Computed example of a mutant assay.
Amino acid sequence: MLYGTPDLEPADEKILGEVEEMRRDLKYRLAETHRWDGQLRRQLQARAIQGSNSIEGYRASVEDIESIMVGEEPLEASAAVAREIAGYQQALTYISLLAKASSFRFDVGLLNALNFMMIGHHVDKTPGTVRPGGIYVRNSATGEVVYEGPDHEAVPALLDELVDWLNAGDLDAPNYVRGAMAHLNLVKIHPWRDGNGRMSRALQTLVLARDQITMPEFSSIEEWLGEGRTTYDYYDVLGEVGRGRWSPHGDTHPWVRFVLRCHHMQAQRVQRRLAEAGEVWMLLEERADAEGLHPRCVSALYQVFVSRRLRRSMYQADESLSQGQAARDLRELAAHDWLSPYGETKGRFYAPGPKMLAIREEFAGRAVPLRDPYA
């Protein structure tokens, strides 16, 4: 028996409708191709990876994660953290492909394969295979056991039941609710020795991605879950619903309500980023044209607007340039006070220069708080 899908209350239905409206708006706006789309998607995926891994204690900057995503060595993250980031990116990349697959069914083999992609570098933790014994989740500060997973002998049958439900269960429920319940059931089954939290968040992203409303990076709430107080709220509601051990008879409504709120908050944020991306890009095009800069330089300027730094190889790949062309463009942008260079050779990067800092400050001053839909 799995944790059951709860009935929604009128307030939940209202918020669900608002989330779906925002997602449809995103879909229509993304249907038209823009030059900034690729960089925006990369940034969103990097933030999702950052959020999900930071919950597990693997912390890296968005800039380092973007470097890892394009095959570069990070400037700050340790080799151990970089391996965790690369594994999670591999799994999310596969999820992006599965989102568009014409023939698709959930199965246990897929779940095991995703787990192996994430933690395959931990061979000692038997990645991609069901745990051979009990498992306990502990409070990292006190060492206290806060959750005990179901007996390992029950796990294969529970995974089979979850897969059956993913393919055919509660199909009349909203996809956001089904994603939330997939997340809850997998994290409570805790079928592997490691990677259970990240797998559960990734499974939720996959459920939503299969709905094909928007691409996975635009529908994921992993970024929101990894931020500050939300992470504590996330643990609290999982503890409230889970009650310390496998107990699929309790009320799951608090969990679903928490997830719907996260979707609403993250959808607001993504909507604003998309609108801001177009405004910033057009502004940078005007400024670049006025200063006689090559139009392709806007790509570098936009990357530095949304990030703390830019590396030559990333700009070179984004614009399909030779190493010499990319280096000349960046030197010219630095000479015009758009960029500030730091470091040497492989460690060299470009941070926002005085002109870019002024634009970033202007847009930061416009920011207004997101609206809590349940407030």
Rank of each mutant, 00 (worst) to 15 (best):
L2C: 00
A11V: 14
I15S: 02
L16T: 05
E18V: 05
E18W: 10
V19G: 01
V19Q: 07
E20G: 07
M22K: 07
R24F: 11
Y28K: 14
L30T: 11
E32P: 03
H34S: 05
H34A: 07
W36Y: 15
D37Y: 09
G38D: 06
S54K: 15
E56L: 14
Y58C: 01
Y58L: 10
R59E: 14
D64S: 04
I65W: 10
E66R: 05
S67D: 12
S67A: 15
M69P: 00
E72D: 12
L75I: 11
E76A: 06
A79V: 12
V81P: 13
A82G: 01
R83T: 08
Q89Y: 08
L98A: 01
L98Y: 06
F104Q: 06
F106S: 01
M117A: 08
M118G: 08
P127I: 13
G134N: 15
R138N: 13
S140V: 15
A141G: 02
E144H: 13
V145W: 15
V146C: 04
Y147P: 02
G149L: 09
P150L: 09
H152T: 06
H152F: 13
V163G: 01
V163C: 01
G179E: 07
M181Y: 08
A182L: 11
W192V: 00
G195E: 02
G197Y: 11
Q204C: 07
V207P: 01
L208C: 03
R210L: 14
P216Q: 03
F218M: 10
D236N: 01
L238H: 06
G239P: 03
E240Q: 14
G250E: 09
H253M: 01
Q266V: 03
R272D: 01
A275L: 10
L283N: 04
E285W: 02
E286P: 01
R287M: 10
A288S: 12
A288L: 03
D289Q: 09
R296I: 13
C297E: 12
L310R: 05
M314A: 09
M314P: 00
Q316R: 15
S320W: 11
Q323L: 14
Q325P: 00
R328L: 11
E332P: 06
E332F: 04
L333H: 05
A334P: 08
W338I: 07
S340H: 12
Y342I: 06
G343L: 02
A351D: 05
A351Y: 06
K355G: 00
I359G: 00
E361P: 00
A375R: 14
